[in-house]
């Protein structure tokens, strides 16, 4: 039997795919991996025909969330683990980048001291326009153990437009990946052209 014929004709519309009874084991395994999409050229054509252009742009944006490998505290260790091969965030298009000019997502992963805030603002200004911010860990959300310190900045969400909060001290890499998935849902539902730094 030709193995090409065993592949599904269209995998983007998952409801039709799951409704079909004639799936073999190979396809089920493929569908159980989150983030992995197997499709055909015909499926892509159908997707392009039946989708609005803003949804297509959002689809592209949410599947290439390159984040800046910018570790600010002990959560930075979890960021590094998330970028390593066992987590395999590449299947969601989440790739660590070392330069802010390559990045789409900035992860605030720790307390922001008064000395570091100008550098963080400069990094955020250097990122190109469709860009998002994830607040990772208790320190960046509310101050954490350092909420009453003389040297940290309070209420970081008044300074940066934060999209997703991930609580934890520190959050596990799985929690960070879940935060990215929530950000993908937010981008997919977005009507405008992405966040610009307006404040």
């Amino acid at each position: 039997m030709d193995p090409l014929n065993e592949k599904p004709q269209e995998n983007i519309n998952e409801d039709q795919q799951l409704a079909g009874e004639d799936m073999d084991m190979e396809n089920i395994i493929h569908n159980e991996i989150p983030g992995v999409i197997t499709t055909t050229s015909q499926g892509i054509t159908e997707f392009l025909k039946t989708t609005k252009i803003q949804d297509l742009i959002n689809w592209g944006r949410k599947n290439s969330l390159w984040f800046m490998a910018q570790a600010m505290g002990c959560c930075g260790v979890e960021i590094i683990v998330t970028g390593m091969s066992p987590m395999d965030t590449d299947r969601f298009g989440i790739i660590p980048r070392n330069s802010p000019r390559h990045a789409d997502v900035m992860i605030i992963s720790g307390y922001v001291t008064k000395k570091y805030l100008p550098a963080l603002k400069r990094l955020w200004d250097q990122m190109p326009a469709p860009k998002w911010i994830i607040c990772m860990g208790d320190c960046s959300i509310s101050g954490g153990p350092f909420y009453e310190s003389y040297s940290t900045v309070q209420n970081i969400d008044k300074i940066f437009p934060v999209d997703v909060y991930i609580p934890g001290c520190p959050p596990r890499p799985e929690a960070l990946i879940q935060g990215f998935l929530e950000l993908q849902k937010k981008i997919a539902a977005k009507k405008d052209k992405g966040t610009a730094y307006m404040r």
């Binding site: 509310s142 101050g143 310190s149 003389y150 309070q154 209420n155 969400d157 008044k158």
Partner: peptide, 13 residues
Amino acid sequence: DYKGFPNRTAKNL
């Protein structure tokens, strides 16, 4: 006698 601590906690708390 340092007085510069933030006198209100973080908003989210």
